[in-house]
Write a protein that binds this DNA or RNA. Structure first.
Lengths: 143, 143
DNA sequence: TATTGTTATACTCTATAACTATA
DNA sequence: TATAGTTATAGAGTATAACAATA
């Protein structure tokens, strides 16, 4: 156990926050032409991937409150990118489904996300970049 | 270039955000007995490390607005952990200096931060943990 | 004129509480 | 009774604009 000063710029909290800020900085200009924010694209990715999910299910996976999810889905619905559908079998639940336009935006967004991530990871070798993603995944998995 | 789905939980934005959430979850209970938040401890680390800094200098390093820094320093001053001092040579600037109590909290906080980081990094080997920190540092440095 | 600190203000993000409808 | 979605509201956190002191 060393007792070096551990300057603020070496702390994981600082590094994670600033990596995130930098990623957002790189990605948002690329998302803008698609007419969506990074947040909205994340929602499209979430609801467009795999079997249909309810709002609550989506909220749980994204780690946000269900009241927050209502507003997020409202935004996407207003843009015509998703629609709500009563879940067959449980009329309390609303499935969130991508419209054809939503599907197009999701696909374009996926490409753009790749590009932004590549820009962020540019200073790393391909191997180190993969290790970074794997390490973060392991650390988060433990939730 | 693969075109796999890149599920939302594999995106760097998601991973960075959730790693940060998890770190905060682990760290805050440890900070609480010290009477400070993680944010406040980061400030103490920033201003307690190296030569005295002005508020503006600190704000720039932390990546926050200077008006935000005013409020943050106010908090620490109210707790008696720092004091402001007019900078010799430029009377517009206020240096932020740790009080003896602030110094004590900073030292205790450093230990606690190490502990929280260790908890977060638990699933990784020591080598992978170091690689993670190094990779984040490289990626952020490019700012 | 420009910069530092400050205040007032507004905006974004998010959660809590209370309601409706379904189960 | 409990759950899903919704609404209204309030609390963080942060930034923009305008001002005083100093350069």
């Amino acid at each position: 156990m060393s007792s070096a000063p551990l300057a603020v710029t070496q702390r994981l909290g600082y590094l994670l926050k600033h990596a995130q800020l930098r990623l957002a900085e790189l990605a948002e200009p690329l998302y803008a032409p698609l007419g969506v924010t990074g947040r909205q694209l994340a929602l499209l990715t979430l609801f467009g991937d795999g079997p249909a999910r309810s709002q609550q299910d989506g909220a749980a996976r994204l780690g946000v409150d269900r009241t927050t999810m209502v507003a997020l889905v409202d935004e996407l619905e207003a843009k015509g990118l998703v629609r709500r559908e009563v879940a067959p079998g449980d009329r309390r639940k609303r499935l969130v489904l991508l419209t054809p336009e939503g599907e197009r935006v999701r696909e374009a967004g996926t490409e753009v996300t790749r590009k932004a991530e590549a820009l962020l990871l540019e200073p790393l070798s391909a191997e180190d970049a993969e290790r970074l993603r794997a390490a973060l995944h392991q650390v988060v998995r433990a939730e």
